[in-house]
Structures are given as structure tokens and as C-alpha cells.
Computed example of a mutant assay.
Amino acid sequence: MKTLRLVPILLFSLSSILSFSQKNSASEKMYFPPNSGNEWETKSISSLGWNSAKQQELVDFLAQKNTKSFIILHNGKIVMENYFDGQTASSPWYWASAGKTLTSFTVGIAEQEGFININNKISDYLGTDWTMETSAQEDQITCKNLLTMTSGIEDSNGDGILRENLLYKADAGKRWSYHNVYVKLQDVVSKATGKSWQNYFSTSLKDKIGMSGAWISKNNNEVYWSDARSMARFGLLALNKGNWNGTLILNQKYFHDATKTSQNINLAYGYLWWLNGKSTYYLPMTQMQFSGSLIPSAPKDMFCALGKNDQKIYVVPSKNLVIIRMGKSANNSNFARSDFDEMLWQKIKAMMN
């Protein structure tokens, strides 16, 4: 009889411990690393109740898939941080199109500071004839069109953003097409603020959250380079909806609009952010609509920054997670989302279960 009574007691105790652990994790205060120095608090896989036996499988997979840097944050603390192929915590790497989200944030800051209005025409800031379109066609294109990839500009001329490459394809707002013309938003911010893009970005965003890195010009396009922890800092800012340790960097109205469906064509796209969990999506370089979620194995509330050759920032509000991947292409060269996203999330889920 004593043994029979002990079983429910032990079960109750184990249940209580697990319940306490889950509540403790849920109520844990969000951590922000200092803006200077190398200090960054960590926590263990086991403290989250994850399967540590699956961690090495994930690490091996990352190494096999040409990864340079990989970081997982939970409530701001580092859970995993791995470097491969000679990369270190201080080595810079390019963000590619994952850096579009930096432009999105900075445009939002410029709007909240009263320098621009994203509903205004690009020509209000850059003057007319910044494209090869007619005046009537060009006059339709707003800052929001560039944020949402709905400029209507021809997308078969590669990444070039010189005037001679900016040709009419459709009326603004009528067609979703992945195009580097969004870079013109950096010119808009520079013209409106009277500062260089580099300077305004640094003082309004980069320096405020302790990021390193710089914009480097390539083919008339500004590409951001930094270490992986700087990318993680930006992901942490996004997880906290534009708030950095009590300091509001970006207002929540703009952030909310940036991370929800921004137009009725590509449901999986916000203001230069990719959105998971939608019923359909489009991909770069195609006008095909695909059914289902962007990354089926990932949480539905996830939003992400996706760059060429598998540069990734995954932000998962429901799990207080930020996940960073930098490196060479995992399989073949790609523009944003790839099969690697799904494969990686299957490995992450196996560890989290």
C-alpha cells in the first residue's frame, strides 16, 4: 500500500517541477546585452527542457551545409553559438537581402522623426525622372510601394538600380516583384534628413543597440556586413517590437505594420520582412503563387529576414526566440527562402521537442 501511495506522490512532484520550470521560463525577464564589450549572458539547452542529444545533430548539419555562424537566443540569452570554417565571433559576413529589414527599420525611424511619410511619392524626395517611366507612371510609386515590393518596375533587368534599368512593367500596387529598387529608400532617407545613409543609420539604429558593421557598396547596392552577434542584436530588437532595454527605437504602429501582410498579392510579405504561417506566398524571380506556409516546420507566427545564399534571421515571438544563420549557400545559390529553411527548422524542432 505504501508503494502505491508513493507513485501518485512522485508523479505529482514531477508534474509540479515541470510546471514550475515552464512558468519560470515564461516569466523570465528579457535580457539585453550591454551596448559595449563582449558580455552576453548564456543559458543551457537543458534549462529549457530541450533535447540536448539532438544538439550535436543540428551542429553537424550546420557544418555540412556551409554555415559560418549560428546563434540561438531565448529571452535574449545565448543558448547556442557556433562558428565554422574559420569564422569567429568577431568575423564579419554579409547580410545580403536579410539587410533589407535594416532599411525597413531605418525608414520607420525617419518617419517617426517627421522626416518622411511612407505614403508620399518617391519623387517628392528624389525629384522626377528617377526612373525611365512616364511621369504618370512614376507618379504612382510611393515609399510604401518600395517597402512592399509593389513598385511595378520591370524585374528582368537583374539587380541594377541605375535609372536606365528602372522600366515600367505594371502600375504601382498591382504586381508584387522582388527587386532591389527598394534601395532608393536609402536615398529618400538621406535626402530628407540631410545626412548620409551610413550616418543616419548609425546614429538612429546601429549605435543605439551596440551593433558593429558597415554598409559596403556593390553593384550600386548597399550590402551590410557585420559579425553574427550584431545580427543577433537586431533580431532581439525585432523580437521586442522596436524596444531596446526600455528605450523605444521604433514605434509599435510602424513595427506592427511592417511585420504583417502589407498588400493583397504576396500574403507572406510585410515591409521588407518575410512572414510565415500565411495561406499562400510568392518567391523572388517568379510570378507563381504557392499554397501553404512559407516554412511549414517553423512556428506560424515567425517573421524573418532572408538573404541570398541562406543568410537568416528568424524571429519567433511565441517562443521568445531569435535564430541567426550566416554562411555560404547551403545547397545552391538562391535569392531568399530556400529548401534549407525547411530542413533547418526540422532539425531545430527535433532539438526543441
Rank of each mutant, 00 (worst) to 15 (best):
I9T: 11
L10S: 12
S13D: 08
L14K: 09
S19F: 15
S21A: 15
K23D: 13
S25Y: 10
A26T: 12
K29P: 06
S36H: 11
N51C: 06
Q55F: 07
L58C: 04
D60L: 08
K68E: 11
K68V: 06
S69Y: 00
N75Q: 15
V79K: 00
A89S: 15
K100R: 09
T101E: 01
T101N: 02
T101I: 01
S104R: 02
V107L: 03
I109A: 01
A110E: 03
S123R: 02
D124S: 13
A136L: 12
I141T: 06
G152S: 12
N157S: 03
L166S: 02
L166R: 06
K169Q: 09
D171G: 07
G173C: 02
S177R: 09
S177L: 07
H179M: 06
V183A: 09
K184V: 01
D187G: 00
S190A: 15
T193D: 08
T193W: 05
S196C: 08
Y200Q: 00
S202I: 04
S212G: 14
N220T: 14
E222D: 13
D227R: 03
S230P: 07
A232D: 07
A232E: 00
A238D: 09
A238E: 13
G246C: 02
N251T: 07
N251R: 01
N264I: 07
G270E: 02
G270R: 03
W274G: 08
N276P: 00
K278M: 13
S279M: 09
M288S: 14
M288R: 14
G292F: 10
P296K: 11
S297W: 00
L306I: 00
P317N: 12
N320E: 13
N320K: 15
M326Y: 10
N331E: 11
F335P: 05
S338Q: 01
M343Q: 15
Q346H: 10
